[in-house]
Amino acid sequence: MSGHVHKDYIGAKFGMWLFLFTEVLLFGGLFILYAVYLARYPQEFISAGGELDVRFGGGNTLVLLTSSLFVAISITALRREKVRLAMGLLGATIGCAALFMINKYFEWTAKFSHGIYPGSEHFAAMKPGEVVFFNIYYLTTGLHGIHVVIGAIILAWTMCLIRSGRVNAKDWVILENAGLYWHLVDLIWIFIFPLYYLVLH
């Protein structure tokens, strides 16, 4: 290969935005199912949704919103050559991701201990609409949880690139794209939180 190096920041961000569209559409399928089944089983959705604990959901919302703030500040910090601050903020973001997952672990464990999981006897005894609600709840928040983990891995990888100097104050588009991805993870939660934890109460 020749030494022709092509750098196109607008193109790189453009590509990232297109990818984010595809993520929105991926979750879109689940939101469509939510809408259809909510219309079909409004009573069951309310009775099942009432069992979700708004403190878990609300706590995780705060955690994710804070983490998005950290990422946004870290980009500005890196551009102003405050590399240590940027690294610290990214570390804090990954910490928030861990906090989110720990919170989720306790939330799901509590549900499981009440016998609310696919295949359990308690599950089989519930009304079909309630079963649908918990199935879609597990799948949506589970898929979102996977995205939180992926996002944290991407941020950790970006930290490695900053440490090695490949991402720096002059060349920071990878950090910005990683940040965009993290904001998307946050944004999807902003839709999940009210749909599952608030409107059904």
Partner: peptide, 12 residues
């Protein structure tokens, strides 16, 4: 076993 399309679990 998350039967979102399974009628016995309320799916369609």
């Amino acid at each position: 076993g998350t039967g979102l399309f399974d009628p016995t679990q309320g799916g369609d």
